[in-house]
């Protein structure tokens, strides 16, 4: 049964990843992680300083894109004043979560793999263990908690960056619609629950990215080369997961109910 070995390997490693992630989530949920709250704050600081700017940058570029396409598409269906609908939905519901997920995977996820992987191969994780410190708690749970502390705010600011970019593209660049007209439609087609749903989508992506990063980094082996391979592998899984979460989120939150203020 040679052709079954590949799926079987996938299943085995999926089980291992799930077990590892369950352990980390348990440690955060049982509040054990607050034993290392100082380390958590340090990780939060690192996250803010090193990752926020690139995340906002990518979201901004994508916001521009959303605005441009939205303006031209609304024009083509004969409703240029409705560009705000397109921008509101495209930004808030779909592309900001995706852009956030991509950049989280690229910057934060692979960063964690590289960092933890190098700690693994230079015996630093073993050193923690023999000093009587639970290394999963100290290294992984603190990172997860740090990302939960910081990323909601980063995400909300990213939405702001996306909105601003779409406004620039629709109103200032294409200019089929006035600023007031744009905003009227733009704000009419979104409401606080939409924002919360979008935030949930983004946070689920971030959580998965951090957990996957921790798994691949913590279990790296085979010297610096092994760390590089693990980093590359984590990216593959993260990309697939980000897309699946994006789709499931859309289906769950907006699939049956478009949550639009008009029509059926």
């Amino acid at each position: 049964m040679e052709w079954l070995t590949v799926p079987r390997e996938w299943l085995t490693s999926a089980g291992e990843i799930a077990k590892f992630c369950g352990k980390i989530l348990g440690q955060v949920y049982s509040l054990k992680v607050f034993r290392f709250f100082g380390e958590t704050l340090r990780q939060s600081g690192i996250l803010i300083v090193s990752s926020t700017i690139v995340i906002w940058g990518l979201v901004f570029i994508i916001g521009l894109q959303c605005g441009t396409e939205g303006a031209y598409f609304s024009r083509s269906v004969g409703a240029p004043s409705q560009a705000g609908v397109f921008a509101a939905w495209c930004d808030l519901r779909e592309l900001v979560p995706y852009a956030f997920g991509y950049m989280m995977a690229a910057k934060v996820g692979t960063g964690i793999v590289a960092e933890l992987g190098s700690m693994r191969i230079s015996d630093e994780i073993d050193a923690l263990e023999v000093m009587g410190i639970d290394s999963v708690l100290f290294l992984c749970a603190t990172r997860l908690l740090a990302s939960w502390l910081v990323l909601p705010f980063v995400y909300l600011a990213a939405i702001g960056a996306g909105f601003f970019a779409s406004y620039l593209a629709v109103v200032q660049q294409v200019g089929d619609v006035s600023s007031g007209g744009y905003f009227l439609v733009f704000w009419m087609f979104q409401n606080p629950p939409d924002l919360v749903y979008s935030l949930i989508k983004g946070m689920v992506m971030a959580t998965v990215v951090v957990l996957v990063g921790c798994y691949y980094g913590y279990n790296a082996s085979g010297g610096p080369v092994g760390v590089g391979t693990a980093t590359a592998k984590s990216m593959v899984l993260n990309i697939v997961m980000v897309h699946l979460i994006g789709m499931l989120g859309t289906q769950v939150f907006w699939g049956a109910n478009p949550r639009a203020p008009i029509g059926g």
Binding site: S122, D123, E124, D126, E129, G132
Partner: peptide
């Protein structure tokens, strides 16, 4: 493990 002290190959100091 607190009874143990371990010196790893390259020191394993935290970077």
């Amino acid at each position: 493990r607190k009874k143990f002290g371990v010196l790893f190959q390259d020191g394993a100091l935290f970077g």
